[in-house]
């Protein structure tokens, strides 16, 4: 039997990859439900490896390339791409973003309006990453939980993991050396007057943000990245900046209702690249930073190949194409 600590997206993805290869897996989760994993529960759910390439290392883009196919086996994936826009006076940010990323096309205001009629006349230029996608991370977590249980995985909620587990996916709680927390704050709004079907990123030199549609007029706005271990609720400053950015994207958001805010402390290594590390008999899957849903599949794949010695750890591209 293989034991896993943590039933957030990383732990569940590992359970799935191990169980589908025939392993007998038990997952220990200190919380009572999927919603007790703040990093996963408050995630954006963007499967946007190329956009992330603006700031992330090439390895993150590479590892994330297979995520869309992976999630399509688990949950509903909205494969309608990502739009990146900037206010006219921050046009330089769009130029920079285009230089730092690939897999996008530059489109004009008319093409933008065809994709997202709500943005007609608001931006003269945009970048369209047509191969990107997004999921509802909460539904995805619930679907992934059900999927691993169907494979026979035993998920024990309200249960502390024993001292020695085979796989530790508990993020900051794992105490892996070299990890640091990066606080992320998010807001969920209900805006019946605004219809966007795909993720839109608004570039701004100080407050870049993304708006991810959750359907039925609900949008998730995120997310801050603050070097802090504080769990306190979202600050007024962050809320002002995020909502101010959303209002700049579309004034219709001014009439929206704020229905939820959330905070998560995302674990990151110094290079912001996730990895498997070994401590005694335990393999740690950690450091997923702001890329939990994007990179958990690749890390889980690495873990499974390590356990079953199917392929070498380095040979990830083969997995990504599988």
């Amino acid at each position: 039997m293989i034991t896993i600590a943590g039933a957030g997206v990383a732990g569940l993805a590992c359970a799935w990859e191990l169980a589908r290869r025939g392993a007998n897996v038990t997952v220990f989760e200190a919380g009572a439900a999927p919603s007790d994993n703040p990093c996963s529960w408050f995630a954006g759910g963007m499967l946007a490896p190329w956009c992330e390439g603006e700031i992330a290392e090439a390895e993150v883009v590479h590892l994330g390339a297979g995520a869309i196919k992976w999630w399509q086996n688990i949950t509903h994936v909205e494969t309608c791409g990502t739009l990146v826009v900037a206010p006219p006076r921050d046009r330089a940010e769009l130029v920079r973003f285009a230089q730092r990323t690939d897999h996008h096309q530059r489109i004009d205001g008319e093409a933008l309006a065809r994709l997202e009629p709500a943005l007609e006349g608001r931006f003269g230029q945009a970048l369209f990453f047509k191969d990107e996608a997004h999921i509802d991370p909460r539904q995805a977590l619930i679907d992934l939980t059900a999927a691993v249980q169907t494979l026979g995985v035993d998920i024990r909620y309200d249960t502390m993991a024993p001292q020695n587990v085979d796989v530790d996916c508990r993020g900051m709680a794992s105490g892996v050396p070299g990890l640091r927390p990066i606080r992320g704050e998010m807001i969920v709004i209900e805006a019946p007057d605004v219809t966007l079907i795909r993720t839109v990123r608004l570039l701004h030199p100080r407050i870049p943000l993304y708006v991810v549609p959750r359907g039925d007029g609900v949008y998730m706005i995120g997310a801050t990245m603050i070097e802090s271990s504080s769990w306190r609720p979202i600050t007024v400053r962050s809320m002002l900046e995020l909502l101010g950015g959303a209002f700049a994207l579309h004034p219709g958001f001014g009439e929206a209702s704020v229905i939820e805010t959330g905070v998560g402390l995302r674990p990151a290594f110094a290079d912001n690249i996730p990895r498997l590390t070994q401590q005694g008999d335990t393999t740690h899957v950690n450091g997923l930073y702001r890329h939990g849903f994007l990179l958990a599949p690749a890390l889980a794949g690495q873990l499974a190949t390590q356990f079953f010695q199917e392929k070498t750890y380095e040979n990830q591209s083969e997995w990504a194409d599988a």
Partner: peptide
């Protein structure tokens, strides 16, 4: 910076002796 690793490499490459650090209330 993209990551603390890149930051530390930039500090070394710059040869600087003084680095500034922003302190927000939450930190």
């Amino acid at each position: 910076y993209p990551s603390p690793t890149v930051l530390n490499a930039a500090i070394k490459a710059s040869g600087t002796q003084i680095i500034t650090v922003s302190l927000r209330r939450e930190t």
